[in-house]
Design a protein around this nucleic acid. Structure first.
Lengths: 204, 204, 204, 204
DNA sequence: CCGTAATCGAGACGGTACGTCGCGTCTTGTG
DNA sequence: CACAAGACGCGACGTACCGTCTCGATTACGG
């Protein structure tokens, strides 16, 4: 196993990196992930193919980084502090608010195409799947874990409930409807999910 | 809009169809979906490529039909009556039993590889995704709808609860963990899901 | 070496045979020999492919027979007696007349396309080439041999001259110009050929 | 009319070009032109198919260039000066000598297979035919034109004779016998042709 | 501040698979 | 039994991209 001598990252062209991100996201949005090719990204970015292969092992990795970059930038715009689920004391209301915002994001085509593509690739490409989960999904889910734990400490959730499992009661149904088109995703729907699920983990 | 004259299905070679199903499923299991090619399926099945393209538009469609055929055959083996979730009167016990069986199936590599591949393809290929859901997923989910409705009539579930949404409380978390590797899937896990979720939709 | 049992020629469909000839000649004239296919001939003739393969081993053979049939028919039209080069006593005049008629025929697209195609196929397919020569070319050349021999007996050609070689002096140049487009073919040209060549074989 | 951007010829791989020439000539000699495929040439040359299609539009063009290259190389070996028909003063002897050499070449399978294939293709493919004639055939014929003109100036040939036509009297018969197998080609035969034809154009 | 080594754009290369066309054989009714 | 229709196994077509590999031209550092 001989690895290439790693390229010198300090000499890397920032302009190219950005152009590649933009081209990748644009192409996935325009023509879909499967018809997006490394060659196409390079041409659109005005970049040699080798410049892509020098820094990323595959088009999936390019897209993952591009999307992470996009998410980071969006977060920076939305307020510089690390994101956190609000805690007004009313768990149901807080969860409903967050899920409504998530619904809006999932319906935004700017996010839909690339994240759906990455999710799809992740199903079949184990390695990428893990990175997708670790860098994008799990950090989001941990926000729910923290919020649920806070509620637990105040007695709004039964103490023996595992928050990591509990959060799936309202997050996973939404995820599945979105990914697999098994049903419409609306604010009313997520409200209902919270209503059903929260009572299940409340003290009896 | 010129469509080819549709081939004459009555002349179709049953032997080839079966060989193609077998080859497709075997290859996906052995080398994975992305490295499975139409050419490879044809070669393994001892069939001309054109015989595949005559009847299916893409490898995803071949695999979908092959998998539907497999599922149908498995159902036929397991007893000829249409499958139904058992109703012992104890909703929690019944759901746990069914979900445990589902867990076992999801861990069986014979089902895992092709169904994961189809799910992945379905994320990105809308048309195929709808067929995947309509022919494989939704029929399963309707079994839960019926079982929950029966429980509802007996007062074990609140009357205003929508069973189609309620079932997602325990099915979707399992689906997500399986698809996205967001956590281990075990009998204990699905038992917990039922415990959490069922109380949420029970009469208060 | 097992030959198929030969099909029963008495039951052969005359209508199909004619339709195949017509279709073959028409297609070669319209789209050229290489783009003419057995499938295309069958479709155009309203005939099953097997009906072609039952009676001919290849498309070249179909075309050869079709062309022989055409030539025969043309000959029948032009007068029922077996064709012969006229003998007015003036060898030069007779040869010029015949060659002028040949030029006209070579320029007729009804003959040009198929005979050129057959010639081409014959270059590369030895077996067909021999049949082409034996059935079409050589019979024509033998007419010249007979006419030259008659002239020889009358002392218009040196006795030791081989007529089979002598005829090539004016026939082959025309053939080459036609086949390989190495020069224009006109009445003046063939007249000149006869002038040059005939003097070479005349008594000195 | 959208033409591809022409590939950059300065970047062309000389090694590949030579390997393709060699493979094409070898295959045509070994298995014949019709059974020679672009795929086969690529495989034998250890080259991607695209590398062939990048530089040539068809296998006929590959073979034409390969053969031109071969002819050029053979000429280079045989002495660097441009080839010319010898002029000993004895026209008949000179022509006989050259034609005998031509006979030997036509019987050499190294030349026979590819040039026969090219001639055949040229009959049916007009464009290629013209290139075949212009680059291979006509230059040879012009040698005869020059030699005949020299003879004419010395009074060995009638002044009103057109050398371009006269040369066909001995060249075309040989060509036809070779191409169409209408008769054996030997030294005796070409000697006879010269004897017959030359007298026809000599002063009377 | 200037040589020089790395990255860059460009794109040719050896490959693999694509989806199509046509081959020649085989199969299935029909007259 | 020949026929029309056409599905079949097969092989080649010409194209699209893959990931690797040169090529100068550009660039930014370290002597």
């Amino acid at each position: 196993m001989v690895d290439k001598p790693a390229p010198d990252a300090t000499r890397r062209s920032e302009r190219s990196r950005r152009a590649i991100y933009d081209a990748a996201l644009a192409l996935v949005a325009e023509i879909g992930y499967p018809r997006t090719t490394v060659e196409g990204i390079a041409a659109r970015a005005g970049v040699g193919k080798q410049t892509i292969y020098r820094w990323w092992p595959s088009k999936a990795d390019v897209l993952l980084e591009a999307f992470l970059d996009l998410a980071e930038e969006a977060a920076r715009e939305a307020g510089h502090q690390p994101y956190e689920i609000p805690d007004t004391g009313d768990l149901a209301a807080d969860l409903k608010a967050v899920l409504r915002a998530t619904v809006d994001e999932l319906l935004d085509p700017r996010f839909d195409a690339p994240s759906r593509a990455l999710a799809a690739e992740g199903l079949v490409n184990e390695e990428l799947g893990r990175r997708f989960v670790a860098h994008l999904l799990e950090p989001q889910l941990q926000l729910y874990v923290r919020r649920l734990r806070a509620a637990q400490e105040r007695g709004a959730v039964r103490p023996e409930v595992d928050p990591r499992i509990a959060l799936e009661l309202f997050v996973s149904p939404l995820a599945q409807r979105w990914l697999q088109h098994t049903g419409p995703i609306t604010h009313a729907y997520t409200d209902t999910l919270v209503d059903y699920a929260l009572y299940g983990i409340a003290p009896r």
